[in-house]
C-alpha cells in the first residue's frame, strides 16, 4: 500500500472513531422522546396545517417556515448551472 493511501486510511479511521465515540451518547434509534423529536419539530407537526394549510409537514416547513433555506437551495442550483456553463462554454463570442 502506498504511503499516501495509508495516511488516508489512518485519517479515515480516526474520523470514524470520533463519529462512533459520539454515537455512544446518542438516543436509541427510533426513540420517540429524543430532544430532536420534542424540541422544535412538534410545533411543525401540530401547527403547520393551521399556519400554512398544507397537510404535508415537509412541504410546509420547506416552503414556509424554512422557506429562506429553500430560496438558497435554488440559488445553489443556479450557481452550479452558471458555473458549469462558464466552465464548459467555448471561448468564442456569439
Amino acid at each position: 500500500m502506498k504511503p499516501l493511501k495509508l495516511l488516508g486510511l489512518i485519517t479515515v479511521i480516526i474520523t470514524g472513531f470520533f463519529l462512533l465515540y459520539g454515537v455512544n451518547d446518542m438516543p436509541r434509534w427510533g426513540d420517540t422522546n429524543t430532544p430532536a423529536s420534542v424540541h422544535v419539530s412538534p410545533y411543525y407537526i401540530q401547527h403547520s396545517q393551521a399556519d400554512t394549510d398544507a397537510p404535508n409537514f415537509v412541504s410546509a416547513v420547506l416552503a414556509d417556515y424554512r422557506g429562506f433555506d429553500t430560496l438558497f437551495e435554488t440559488t445553489v442550483i443556479f450557481c452550479a448551472g452558471i458555473a458549469c456553463m462558464m466552465l464548459l462554454r467555448k471561448e468564442e463570442d456569439a
Partner: peptide, 27 residues
Amino acid sequence: PESIEVAKYINPLPHVLMLTAIVVGVS
C-alpha cells in the same frame, strides 16, 4: 393543533434539511 399527536408522525425537519442537502450534493 392540540389534538395532533406528535409521536404519531415522523419528525419532518431533518427531511426538509436533507432535501436541500441532496440538491447541494448534486450541484
